[in-house]
């Protein structure tokens, strides 16, 4: 699903956020991305979502070399990815329903289909009764779940999450992580950046660790070796 090949990312300031990263997340697999603050977790996810471009090396996303993707094609790549942010990034001038519907509207789904899918997604995150609410009236955990519903409503084949449990209590964090595990069980590839090591250990999925922009631990290597 995702393959990094000697990827470097140097920000304009000259800071090398990622050095020589290579790993492979097979289709349908779930993995955690950990590392200290500033290790380069967000940068790595941004490279996959084409928010940033690598300075060197290649990234293959479902067989597509992202270096060859022109800016005008970027939106179509992103439509196959569900992205979840730490700070929800919801639109506060519309209802929960309209927020979740956005990816479908962008992709040009029929009105009736939109309603069906949005309710299915809200049902999966347990917010079916909140569809008419304004996001601002929801708790932090609920808002995060609206963000997740929006990320999965169009059934992407890859989910990226950056600190999805950043400011949630342990109980809620666990629920959210289990939610991701459930999506993974129905075939969605998932990559979650988090520094909640205890929780990650409990969840038991493979872990990739970064330190100062370098890959220092890669469970996926073993997964690949086992598969091979």
């Amino acid at each position: 699903m995702i393959r990094f090949d000697n990827v470097n990312k140097r920000y304009p300031g000259g800071h090398e956020a990622l050095s020589n990263i290579s790993f492979h997340l097979p289709r349908g697999k779930m993995a955690y991305l950990t590392g200290h603050s500033g290790a380069g977790k967000s940068t790595l996810l941004k490279l996959i979502a084409l928010i940033e471009r690598p300075s060197r090396g290649n990234i293959l996303l479902d067989g597509v070399n992202l270096s060859n993707v022109r800016n005008s094609k970027v939106p179509y790549i992103r439509r196959n990815i569900g992205i979840i942010f730490q700070n929800h990034h919801l639109l506060y001038d519309r209802t929960v329903f309209d927020n979740v519907a956005l990816p479908l509207v962008i992709a040009g789904y029929q009105h009736r289909e939109v309603g069906k899918r949005v309710r299915a997604a809200l049902d999966q995150v347990g917010l079916l009764n909140k569809e008419k609410c304004a996001p601002i009236t929801l708790s932090g955990g609920e808002q995060q779940r609206v963000g997740i519903a929006r990320a999965i409503v169009h059934k992407p084949s890859l989910l990226l999450a950056d600190e999805p449990t950043g400011n949630l209590d342990p109980e809620l964090s666990r629920e959210i992580m289990e939610l991701f595990a459930r999506f993974n069980q129905v075939g969605v590839s998932v990559l979650i950046a988090s520094h909640d090591l205890d929780l990650i250990k409990q969840m038991g999925s493979p872990v990739i660790s970064l330190s100062q922009g370098m890959l220092i631990h890669d469970d996926l290597k073993e997964v690949a070796d086992v598969e091979a």
């Binding site: 979502a49 928010i51 005008s72 939106p75 179509y76 790549i77 992103r78 439509r79 990815i81 992205i83 990034h89 919801l90 639109l91 001038d93 956005l102 990816p103 962008i106 992709a107 929006r150």
Partner: peptide, 15 residues
């Protein structure tokens, strides 16, 4: 911020 979010979700510039 709305524009940024919609771009992230895959909206084209035309949209």
């Amino acid at each position: 911020s709305e524009i940024e979010v919609t771009k992230l979700i895959g909206a084209t510039n035309a949209f």
